[in-house]
Computed example of a mutant assay.
Amino acid sequence: MQNGLYVAVSAQVALERRMETIADNMANMNTVGYRATGVSFAAEMAKAGETNLDYASSGSDYLSRRIGGLTKTDNPLDFAVQGDGWFGIQTPRGTAYTRDGRVRIDEQGTLRTLSGDPLLDAGGAPILVDSAAGPLTVSADGMISQNGRQVGAIGLFAIDADANLKRAENSGVAPDNPARPILDFTRDGVVQGAVESSNVDPVREMTRLIDVSRAFDGVAAEASQSESSLQDAIKALGSSS
């Protein structure tokens, strides 16, 4: 008799988690390089007497790799990725990868993200330039030049499609499989004077929000009906005894 209540509660837990990811995505829709969070669900089977019940799992988070749009800024220290590559950054927790290529040059000439993490070259080392040698010119293969002289290169990295991604600093990700340097720039490259916007689709997220709200209302009504049926059964059993 109470099986319906248990199933309804599991559905409400799953819907609450989906609602939280939608709220997080909407809050970051204007965050440069942000990757939207999605939730995948699976039915979990349970045996209740002679009956098999389908419970909704609490869900597993994943980060969308859909590419965001490019916005031209004309700032020579703004960089975006053309293709599927990632910039490498050195964070206090280790190497992470980001699509947010906004950088600054510190007093020692190190290229750092706006949050202070060093930007890395293809070998995983911080990039040093001459802070007094004039503006940087960066080509599609990441090569950095100052006054016509090559001074370094911005690394681009490929992350395996089956790697699990966790959030890291600077709108970045930390894969469970090591990323590898990109050496072929036919499809991937660096765009100077531009940034990549968040890949959150606000219209899609609003549609999902409406769907989740309606589903939550439906599950709540089903739970209320199951509870009423249980109370009616208890009353019926009490009056017949």
Rank of each mutant, 00 (worst) to 15 (best):
R104Y: 02
L114D: 04
G49A: 08
S239R: 14
D141S: 02
G83K: 00
N177A: 15
S240E: 09
G101N: 07
R93Y: 12
R102W: 10
T31K: 07
Y62E: 00
G88N: 02
R104I: 08
D117A: 15
N28T: 01
D54P: 09
I89W: 13
A132G: 10
V203Q: 05
D117W: 08
V203G: 05
V39W: 05
N75S: 03
G49K: 08
F157G: 08
I89P: 08
L53D: 03
T71G: 08
V13H: 10
A80E: 05
N30F: 07
D24L: 02
G172F: 04
N25I: 06
L70R: 02
E227P: 06
V200R: 11
A27E: 09
S213T: 15
N170T: 12
R104M: 13
V103D: 04
S10Q: 08
T31H: 06
M143G: 11
K166Y: 10
I89D: 05
Y97H: 00
G88R: 02
L209M: 15
I67S: 13
A140V: 06
A96C: 05
A42R: 14
P175G: 04
T207E: 13
G69V: 05
V212P: 03
S145Q: 14
M1A: 15
A125Q: 12
L63M: 15
T73P: 07
G101R: 07
T137R: 12
S139T: 14
Q192M: 06
D54V: 12
Y34H: 10
E222C: 07
Q192A: 09
S224E: 11
S60K: 15
E196P: 07
S239C: 03
W86N: 00
A56H: 07
T31I: 08
L120S: 09
R149Y: 00
S115M: 13
S241P: 02
R99G: 04
D130N: 10
N177H: 14
S57L: 03
T91R: 02
N3I: 10
Q90E: 12
S241I: 11
A221D: 15
G189V: 08
V195P: 02
L111V: 10
S115E: 14
A125P: 04
G109D: 03
K235A: 14
R93W: 04
A125M: 14
T51A: 15
A80M: 12
